[in-house]
Amino acid sequence: MNPSNHLTACPACDLLMETISIKQGEKAVCPRCETLLRQAKTHSITKVLAITSSALIAYIPAIFTPLLTLKTMGLAQSGSIFDTFLSFYHQKYYFVAVLVFVTSIFFPLLKLSLLFFVSLQLKIGVYSRSLPLLFRISHYLDEWGMPDVYLIAVCVSIIKVSNLATVEYNIGLFCFIFLVFMTRASVSALDTHLFWNTIENMKKKLRHIKK
């Protein structure tokens, strides 16, 4: 079925080499361009499932409840992440509003739920035809979900407004910090190579049963 499994091509420089098996915790690096080829991780599927499900719980309060409250001269103003999208929208910067919506609200949610469904299916061993597609889309979203950048932006804003008004931290901020850390954790727990191999094996098994 698969004559080329003993060979690997480096994704960055296309060097053809023999596949070496690596133990858990080890890394494989391309000898020519030093690109990281593969890093074996322990219990990747279970970890990703646990991390994404806890991140999804924190998602709604993180996005929709206020992050910060500013108080000055008897006036108070608070805002959630969803409000920041709305404020660009009301100022008629539609392009930037859509960009902020997509990068800080929609893609993080999509990425987490895709990883959740894929790891859930791999964990319970149910193969569906859409599985490879879902996992591929979650790869495309790697770059475009930016909750971590947003968190640094929140820090910068706190310092910027701290001499203008008193800043109160709300529950939304803590949920958001949790969400960012869980999103990062899901990336570092994900063993792409293992996920693809498991998907391929499940598909083969399915074909075998059908025959």
């Binding site: 000055t72 001269m73 006036l75 960009l99 990068t103 804003s157 407004v161």
Partner: peptide, 27 residues
């Protein structure tokens, strides 16, 4: 992706610092 930082800062500032005539920030 890290260059989006400034855009997010402006988004947050224009949302939070909105006290009418006293002080407000816009993009």
């Amino acid at each position: 992706r890290w260059s989006m930082l400034d855009v997010f800062v402006i988004a947050l500032m224009s949302c939070l610092v909105d006290f009418g005539r006293i002080s407000s920030t816009m993009a």
